[in-house]
Amino acid sequence: MGQANVGKSAFFNRLTGAKVAESNYPGTTVDFTKGHMLFQGEYVDLIDVPGTFSLQPKDKAEEVAVKMLGEEKEALVICIIDASKVERGLYLALEIIEKGYPVIIALNMWDMAKSVNVKVDTEKLEQILGVPVVPTVATRGEGFKELVSRMGQAAPVTIEEIIRSVGNSSRTHH
């Protein structure tokens, strides 16, 4: 899952070898696609969904994504965030975490973030959220080995834990 145009389909194509359309405009993907990827020695289903800005869908394409999340209660969610726009990506990620899904976060477009001079402290982000956070560049396949190898560490966390750890880390900071 992820917001519009963050590279979900590029991710999906990389991980499954599919040929879903990738384009630089929001709303490229309007329906879901299922594929298979190798994870811990066996093939598992991976689903590409349309982008959605939040879990309150504002059109029919976003509805597809939100509905899919609701139906796949056992799913592990790869939450893709545009590393140059982390704030709003985190907003959606928190919504998904609140629903109790095990999440792994990919900070995609790491190259773009670098070029506009946005730095993200992935270790600290990981500490605060309590879920794996991996920088990636989907178009070049960077970070994918790490992503796949750490998918197993994705586990549900509660919002209280996150709130507590932000408090802690800001206290040690100042």
């Binding site: 982390v86 704030e87 993200v120 402290d121 600290k124 605060i128 959220l129 996150i162």
Partner: peptide, 8 residues
């Protein structure tokens, strides 16, 4: 969270 982890 952003204040702790992001530097623009």
């Amino acid at each position: 969270i952003a204040k702790e982890t992001i530097e623009v």
